[in-house]
Simulated assay, not measured.
Amino acid sequence: MNPNALEVKAQQRGWKVISEHDSAGPMFTLVRDDWEIWVAFAGDIPDSATLRKPGTTEHRRLPLRDIGMWVRRDPHEMSRFAIGDHVTVAGRHGIVTDIRLGVSRLKKHAEKIRLVITYEDGGTGSPYSDQAARVMVKS
């Protein structure tokens, strides 16, 4: 994805685009809700990218092939949960420890958002975000 295509696609999908430029090429910071994607280009080719998910301050390396899949995800689906949220899934209570793209093995494209949940009664799960409900925790 070239810089112009990324900027247009991001704006169409509701991302705020902050652009900078250095001697290697353009750099974009895309912000939507509590999500942040940073992409640096070498000329017109993506060179490196990071992703910061809601509920964390940590930026993690983002595979270049995944940039477009994250940019195109539904904003309502992405904004439903943050890392650290208390949730319930089919009667089991747990905490969101990660948020990932569900990927179709047959079609090799991103599907819905998946949550990684550590359950209070033991074990982990990876349900789609629409299968979980946020639980209000009393302080």
Rank of each mutant, 00 (worst) to 15 (best):
T124Q: 15
I113T: 11
K107P: 00
S129P: 01
A133Q: 15
V116K: 13
R114D: 07
G84I: 03
L115H: 02
L62K: 11
S79Q: 12
I113D: 05
K107A: 12
I117M: 09
R80M: 00
I67N: 04
T97D: 10
T118W: 10
A132I: 01
K108V: 00
K108E: 15
R100Q: 14
T97Y: 07
Y128D: 03
G94E: 05
S104G: 07
P127W: 01
R61K: 14
Q131T: 10
V116E: 15
S126Q: 12
S79G: 09
I117P: 05
H109C: 06
H93Y: 12
L115A: 05
E77W: 02
G123Q: 06
V135I: 14
G91L: 02
G91R: 02
A90T: 05
E77P: 04
G91P: 03
A90G: 12
P75K: 11
P127D: 07
I99Y: 07
P127E: 06
T97I: 12
G84H: 08
M78Q: 11
K107H: 13
T118H: 14
R134K: 15
M69S: 15
V116P: 01
D66P: 00
G123Y: 01
I99N: 03
I83Y: 11
F81W: 08
R134Y: 01
G94S: 07
M69K: 15
H93M: 10
D74F: 08
P75M: 00
T124C: 06
Q131F: 04
